[in-house]
Amino acid sequence: MTTQAFSQLLNELGNPSLYVLDPSISKSDYVALDLSKSNDALNTVDVSSSETLEQYINSYIIKNNAKVAYGGYLETRNIYQRSSYFKDINPETERNIHLGLDLWIAAETPIFSPLDAEVHSFKNNTNHGDYGPTIILKHTIENMEFYTLYGHLSLASIQNLQVGQVFKQGHQIGTLGDASVNGDYAPHLHIQIIKDVQGFVGDYPGVCSKLDLEFYKGNCLDPELLLSLK
């Protein structure tokens, strides 16, 4: 499947928009959030602290009369510098470009499958700053296979899961975790679309370096194509 064909398929599937949060939350209740290193408002925020970042995000949501903050696809972020898992002294190979879309909302929020799917794999990724509990779903549509990844879930989301388990569109797949299990972040969902999962199991890079960006831009398209939040 070419990137163009993949993009076209996602566009068609996302019209009308699909959902991974409660569909009763209207689009007007979502507000775009910039966590890139170019956002000067973050200069006074200790983004290495999950508590401080959560306070900042919650205040931002309240100030904008919203329920969910979203954004982050291909954002270059400073937040990953707190973790040796991502940090690198070489700016070309440091992994700081975000490959998914983040939906910032409270822990225990239910997460739903946007499409018919089966469980490809799941895992608790416990590195500092990593996904924590993660589910990868496989979708087969019009003879095309692709994957969606859901990171920063609760431990309960993966406890009774089985590879091959089927979820129908709109069925709940799990709930969001808090900072104690989700890689030490403010509660949020990381959703990522993956064309070729490359043999990964329960994990796939959600952040890349400048050096690898062109590959990942073609393999991990914008989840906005499905969710249509803008």
Rank of each mutant, 00 (worst) to 15 (best):
A5W: 01
T109F: 04
L42R: 02
S59V: 01
F112G: 00
S26P: 02
I111H: 00
N15D: 11
I105N: 03
T52K: 15
Y60G: 06
R95P: 01
D116M: 03
L18Y: 00
E92T: 03
P114E: 04
L103D: 01
G100P: 12
N43G: 03
K63S: 13
N11G: 15
E75L: 09
S36M: 06
Q8Y: 07
S17W: 10
S83V: 04
I89G: 08
G72M: 06
N39F: 05
Q55I: 05
Y70K: 07
D46C: 11
S49C: 03
V20S: 00
I97Y: 13
K37N: 14
A32W: 10
Q4A: 12
K123W: 04
L103F: 08
S38Q: 11
T93F: 07
D46T: 09
D22V: 05
W104M: 07
L9C: 01
A41I: 08
K27C: 00
L21M: 07
P23T: 10
A66T: 02
D40N: 05
Q55R: 10
S28E: 15
S121Q: 13
L99N: 09
D40P: 11
A5H: 06
D34R: 00
T44H: 07
T93C: 05
F6V: 13
S24L: 13
E75K: 14
Q4W: 02
L74R: 10
E118G: 02
A66R: 10
S24D: 14
S38M: 08
N43C: 06
N11H: 08
A69T: 01
A69H: 10
Q4H: 14
Y85D: 04
L101F: 06
V47N: 03
Y30Q: 03
F112W: 02
F86G: 08
E51N: 08
F86K: 05
A66H: 09
S38F: 06
E75V: 00
S36P: 11
Q55D: 15
G71Y: 07
N78M: 02
T44I: 12
